[in-house]
Amino acid sequence: MDFDIDDEQRNFAQHARDFFSEQAGPEHARTLLAAPGEAAPGRRVLAELGFSSLTIPEDFGGVGAELLNMALVAEQAGRQLAGPSLTTAARVAVLLADDADRLAAFSEGRLSLAVLDGPPSGSRPSMDVVGATHFLALDGDDLVIGEGRVTLGEPIDATRGLGYVELTSSEVVAQDAQARWARARQVACVILAAEGLGAADRAVEIGLEYAKTRETFGRQIGAYQAVKHRLVDDWVAVNQLRSLVWWAAWAADHAPDQLPIAASAAKAYCAGTFETACETLIHVLGGIGFTWEHDAHLYWRRAKVDRLLLGDESEHLAAVATCTLHAADAAATGELQPI
């Protein structure tokens, strides 16, 4: 058993950490709330650095890395509330797996894509549609691509580039695409959970820093168990979330039969963990955490939005339960080995 990342992956994550702390950050997320547009660092830069083409094979202009490496980058992107989401990139890589031309165009940043949830005639709120020129959608059993009319709403977290899209043109990319669509969504859940992991980790970190310096009644507030224990619970949860994210990302490439449960487990666990970490942060900070100027609400906004994207906690908890029940039932009747 070796359930750890290696030194090369650690260095790679550090490189990503440095990059995102320079090129993104909560200050960009705050600015974006007043002046809508594409989130920092933006599609072009993510493509240039190869971050958005990490899981695209080298033959198609990508990096050819495993999903785990993308999860490590996504964690660092999440810490700085960066956008567009690597979720979209990971999903595109799966959806366009046999479309060499479009994958190459996407890898090189020539094609700006978003993936729509819901019907192409009028999508549900979908990520990263701000700045996208083309949209992938599931139309019946067909995977289609087209241009579209975008309607933006008033954002809670402007870095997610959310909007409603109605396709105005449509070309079939692949037929019989349900299974591929499902896998792409699972992979996307892993990366979204990885971004949530990074953001939640940062929220706990800010809370810990403050609890060590701020004093009330002559003591640092982190000395009080009421404060300390909330921060510890959040820290423990973040570490547990990291285990689930790593497992799910690893499973995508090495144990595809485990991916549905692992991806849903990571996504479900992330929803509560990230949200609670942000609520704790605001509470530990006190009044300052309730101000527009403090970064806390920017993480909170991300948490409130992410928990509902790509299926909410209830959907994924039910998925974990249903898959596990079926696997156990099948094992009991001798059809399959339990996972």
Binding site: S243, L244, W246, W247, I261, A265, L317, A318, V320, T324
Partner: peptide
Amino acid sequence: VEALGRVLVESLAARYSGYR
């Protein structure tokens, strides 16, 4: 089913953290 999912996810999180 949702409640079962919650227990299983907690259990998986603990198990894989144990592996680490």
